[in-house]
Amino acid sequence: MTGWHASDALVTRYANGSLPEPDAWSLEKHLESCGSCAARASRAVRETPAGVVLAEVRETVLRASEREAAADTSAAAPSRPLRRARFRVSRPLTSTPIGSRTARALWAAGPAVRGAWSASVLGVALAAVLLARFADFAGARPLLLAVAPAVPVAGVALSYGAHSDPLHEIAAATPSAGIRLVLTRTAAVLAVSLPLLTVAGALLPSSGAPAAAAWLLPGLALTLVSLALAGYLGFRAATAVTGGGWLCAVLAPVLTADGRLTARLAGQVSAYLDGAPAQGGWAATAVLCAALLIARRSAYDRLDRR
């Protein structure tokens, strides 16, 4: 039993099939541990037209099964006895069918992945390619590499917390809440952003910038930094500090220095991303932040529940 209960409007939408599948999944996880809400949802489903039909079908099948079982008992060589059919009225016939486990997991991965954020990442990648191919902007790859490490950080900010997820209270009350839910949604964000931005970078002219994959380890490290800080500051503040700090560190020197913009940007990005010392530093940062996450994993059980 949790301290949160589903509203009547939410239960009604779940019963009539108008609640989106990801939200219905979150509500169903809550119903597993809340008997009062489960009873209300079951009663609401039975009162729908589909629930009435299912109840009638259930009674018809039960009566037919009982008649067949009685006939089988009088046969000389009875076949396998028919067991009494058992039916549980759950989602109505008009609701959206439940897809595969993989599809449900993707939908449950977070608002950033199933919302407009994924389209925004794709838009950033396409804009960089179009800027280089049709506007002949030589600094497209350095600019993309400068922005790319902050993109998954922004995705993490949009994936967790009451500010972005209308059913955050339900998700936070499930057995998979806490650090497990945080890491699941972070992995979904990385799975979307890393391949899209890396492929886009590979399609752009180098212009003196590092390789297209040079941002992957820094992007992972910055994401882990934001998660580690979230245990102290909350997700919004942690991601703002991490993403904003990175953009200021990379772009501020470029905007204030003299010389050609493309060359300055390529040099600045190379200083942060290129070479064994830089990549080794990012690797060490990622390991330290991962260790901090493991050490303070219990702090995420209470994170952003307000």
Rank of each mutant, 00 (worst) to 15 (best):
Q279Y: 12
L273K: 07
A278V: 08
G245R: 09
V250M: 03
V241T: 13
G267N: 12
R264V: 04
C248F: 08
C289M: 15
A240N: 08
Y272F: 15
L288R: 05
G245D: 03
Y272A: 14
D258Q: 12
G280F: 09
A249F: 00
A286T: 02
A238E: 06
P253L: 13
L247I: 10
G244Y: 10
P253W: 08
G234C: 11
W282R: 01
T262R: 09
F235W: 04
G244H: 11
Q279E: 08
T285L: 15
G281M: 01
T239Q: 07
A276Y: 13
G243P: 11
G275P: 07
A266V: 12
L261M: 14
L251E: 05
W282E: 00
P277G: 00
G259S: 08
A257S: 15
G280V: 10
A238V: 13
L293Q: 14
A240W: 11
T262A: 14
V250R: 08
A291T: 06
T285G: 14
V269T: 06
C248R: 02
G281H: 04
A278D: 06
G281L: 02
G281E: 03
A263K: 11
G243W: 06
T239V: 12
L273M: 15
S270M: 02
A278P: 00
L265D: 03
R236P: 14
T242D: 10
G275N: 05
A276R: 14
A290F: 10
A286G: 14
A238W: 06
R260V: 10
G267P: 02
L251Q: 03
G244S: 03
A237D: 10
T262H: 07
L255F: 13
Q268P: 11
A266R: 07
Q268W: 00
G281Y: 01
R236C: 03
P277N: 04
L293N: 13
